[in-house]
Amino acid sequence: MKEGWKELPIGAIIKEAGSSIKFETGDWRTRKPVLNKEKCINCLFCWVFCPDSSIIVENGEMKGFLYSHCKGCGICAEECPVKAIEMVKEEV
């Protein structure tokens, strides 16, 4: 149940920073990126070019994809200098 007018914060502001994370855009995808860890050189170009902050990096190491939000645009695969990412058809 969404809030009634008495419960909403004043002035239509949003108090919770980054709340969009709760809205999952992963189901927009028709193709999904798959990482070949063997090939990956952790250059992180995929991270810097991803429009959806969906490259998971831990301590400078490419760990995979945030599939809950990745929209499957394929920029990461296109820009990967060592072709470590492949776009595959999304299974429904």
Binding site: K2, E3, G4, W5, L8, G11, A12, I13, I14, K15, A17
Partner: peptide
Amino acid sequence: ITVGPLDLQDYFFEH
């Protein structure tokens, strides 16, 4: 905080 968001059919009326 975010001020001045896009408010659609589900919240505009309440605001």
